[in-house]
Amino acid sequence: MMPVLPIQSSATTEECLHLGKLVVLTGPSGVGKGTLMRSLLERHPELYYSVSVTTRSPRPGEIDGKSYYFISGSKFEQLVAEDEFLEWAEFAGNYYGTPRETVLNQINSGKLVVLEIELEGARQIRASFPSALSVFILPPSFDELEKRIRSRAQDSEEAIARRLIRAHEEIQAADEFDIQIVNDDFETALNEIEAVLFK
């Protein structure tokens, strides 16, 4: 069950961001942003990672409430109608969203909050929270990205084709974001993210 925590202040959403900090990490499917985020959280347990809500099925090893909150499409649509999401988007036939009140509560308490979300959601955050820091993770090349997506062996050929078309569109949007980091060497990319967060 997705926790919804009350905001402990009458501050507006944008005012909350002056107390804590919101960082958005995005990039195309297969670029390695999830792996980077996991390593970042292991190194820095003081970060608050906002667990997204999704309608897709869990992948092997994923835990409900830790990897994602896995819910039905009808429940997701109900939460959208109730304005429970800070941002939400449809990707590869599934919905993804960020719980609003939980994130604002953490920012209001002074935490550094990190989101790992898709491009459409990241654009929503940039529009409503201009003070949020946005980081776009790029692959070293499109061929390498395709290789990574195929190596996961989790998608049909049709799903892979959809992801690659979407990835090409997303990479074109990299310049919209404050910082671009190429995930060629994993350790280098992780160090660059740390430098951005803790400079």
Rank of each mutant, 00 (worst) to 15 (best):
T55N: 04
G65F: 12
L47H: 00
F70N: 07
V51L: 00
R38T: 12
L79I: 00
Y68G: 06
E120G: 12
E118K: 09
G121F: 02
I137M: 12
G61S: 00
F85A: 06
N94W: 12
S57M: 13
L36P: 11
L36I: 10
G65L: 03
L133D: 10
I137N: 00
Y69R: 04
E118A: 08
S134D: 14
R126M: 09
R43V: 05
V114I: 12
Y49P: 06
L112R: 02
L40M: 02
W88K: 01
D143Q: 13
L138I: 03
H44Q: 07
R126A: 12
G61D: 08
A89R: 01
S52E: 14
G93E: 00
F129I: 06
Y95T: 11
S141G: 02
A81S: 15
P58E: 08
Y95C: 12
S128C: 03
G73W: 05
V51A: 01
T55G: 09
I137L: 09
G65Q: 08
S39F: 15
G30Y: 11
E82R: 02
V103G: 03
N108R: 14
W88Y: 15
T102M: 11
T102P: 11
G65S: 09
G61M: 01
G32F: 04
H44N: 07
F85L: 10
F136V: 05
G30A: 07
Y68I: 02
L40Y: 05
G93V: 08
A92F: 13
V31T: 07
V31M: 09
S109C: 10
N105L: 14
P130L: 00
M37K: 05
K75F: 08
P130D: 07
D64P: 04
L115C: 12
R38F: 06
S50G: 07
